[in-house]
Simulated assay, not measured.
Amino acid sequence: MDAQRDEWSDRRQIHDVVLRYCRGIDRLDFTLVRSAYHPDAIDHHTGFDGSVDEYIAWVEPKLRARRGGTMHIVANHLVELLGDTAISETYGTSVHWGEPADDPRVNFTSGVRFVDHMARRDGRWAIAERWAVREWTRSDAGRLKPKEAAGPSGSRDADDPLLRLQRKLRGTEAGS
């Protein structure tokens, strides 16, 4: 039972690494993005190959300059455990939007696979090397429509509903 529990725990921790990366990119939380990688990790993205520090230095200004956002949607996730290393393959969709709304370089959706060499070091699973494989891309230029009514909206700052809830439940709201 303990071996089964350890395997389940390893798979859950590896999946959490993938989700932390996606949340970090989408919320512009680059500390969270960095936490998904080991310090000496290598990343391969469309238009980029290099260390995790170089990757963050490359991607952060691109995402901060964009008036809009990204949403990474995780689908199939398969892990092959190999002791303290693992092969993790995650299928997903990456949606990008911004200004100008008719620019296909800013407004597009891609089918992606994250092919990750995961490693457990000092009890912590993280990415040792990542290949962000772009399987397809379609233009969404001119297709974004405004919300049909008032309601919660996401943001990439302290006003995002997630960050407000975290502050509230952790007791870090002003006056708590």
Rank of each mutant, 00 (worst) to 15 (best):
L169N: 06
T137Y: 00
R143W: 00
S51R: 08
D53A: 15
D6E: 11
D43L: 07
R27P: 00
G24W: 07
D2Q: 13
G123T: 03
S139V: 04
D40W: 09
R120D: 04
R20D: 13
E80A: 10
R5T: 13
G68D: 00
V59S: 09
E99P: 00
D116P: 04
Q4G: 13
L63Q: 15
L78H: 13
R134T: 10
D160L: 02
H117T: 10
W131T: 07
L28H: 08
R170W: 09
D159N: 15
S153F: 10
R20G: 09
A41T: 12
A132N: 15
T109H: 04
H117I: 05
W8D: 07
H44N: 09
D43F: 12
I42H: 12
E99I: 01
W136N: 06
D84P: 04
G47V: 08
K62T: 15
E54P: 10
D84A: 09
S9D: 07
F48I: 06
A132D: 14
N107I: 00
F114L: 14
W125R: 01
A3S: 09
L63C: 06
F108M: 08
R27F: 05
D16I: 04
R20E: 10
H15D: 07
K145I: 09
R27Y: 08
D140T: 07
A132Q: 12
S88R: 02
G50C: 05
A141F: 05
A36W: 00
R12C: 12
Y55W: 13
L19Q: 09
D159Q: 12
E135N: 14
W58T: 06
D2K: 11
T137V: 06
E173C: 11
G92D: 04
P152E: 12
Q13L: 14
P146A: 02
V52L: 12
G111F: 01
A119W: 05
G171T: 02
G98Y: 00
D26K: 02
D102K: 00
P104L: 04
D40A: 15
D157G: 07
L63E: 09
G83K: 05
E135W: 04
D102S: 06
H77G: 02
S110Q: 12
I127D: 00
H15F: 08
W136G: 02
T31I: 09
A119H: 08
W131V: 10
N107D: 02
L19A: 11
E60S: 10
A36T: 05
H38F: 03
C22G: 10
D40F: 09
W97L: 01
R105C: 08
D103G: 01
R5G: 08
P152Q: 12
I14A: 01
V59A: 14
F48V: 06
D157N: 15
K168P: 00
E7I: 07
P152F: 05
R138S: 12
G154R: 10
D49T: 15
A126I: 03
T109C: 12
E173W: 05
A149C: 11
V79A: 02
K145N: 07
K147G: 08
R143Q: 09
R156H: 09
R67V: 13
Q13E: 15
R5Q: 09
T109I: 14
G154L: 14
R66V: 11
E173D: 13
